[in-house]
């Protein structure tokens, strides 16, 4: 399973990439692989305010459905509308083209509650 070094992670298998005050969010390689071929994603609304670890999107494959939780509090500033027509981007490129939403962070300190790549890697191994 691919885990990118400079990203942060949650136990629910979301990733975050932080640049200035903007956090880009997606689901990890482990999550997309467990789901299988993604058929639909319900994106959050731009402008919505979310709390850390609040459910803000959901994702479906043929045989599974899963909620996606926002790793950090803030305001949704952009969503990846390409996923509406091409949900397979999540399978093909979960860390890049398959990003889900961008959040303007309101409490950047919260990232201390997230896992580093190394911690997430260990977490994945503990799940085996």
């Amino acid at each position: 399973m691919e885990v990118l070094d400079h990203y942060l992670y949650t136990k629910e298998h979301e990733w975050v990439s932080i640049e200035d005050s903007i956090a880009t969010i997606g689901i990890t390689d482990f999550a997309q692989s467990a789901l299988g071929d993604v058929t639909f994603i319900e994106l959050p609304e731009v402008g919505a305010e979310v709390e850390q670890f609040e459910q803000f999107a959901s994702i479906e494959s043929v045989k599974a459905a899963s909620d996606i939780y926002c790793p950090l509090s803030g305001t949704i500033v952009e969503v990846n509308t390409k996923l509406e027509e091409n949900p397979e981007l999540i399978n093909k490129s979960c860390y890049h083209k398959g990003w889900i939403a961008k959040v303007e962070m309101s409490s950047p300190d919260e990232h201390s509650k997230l896992m580093t790549a190394e911690e997430y890697q260990n977490y994945l191994e503990s799940l085996q």
Binding site: D37, T39, F40, E60, V62, E88
Partner: peptide, 10 residues
């Protein structure tokens, strides 16, 4: 034979 269920849902 096995149908394409991903296509059915997408």
């Amino acid at each position: 034979s096995r149908p394409d269920e991903v296509r059915a849902a997408r």
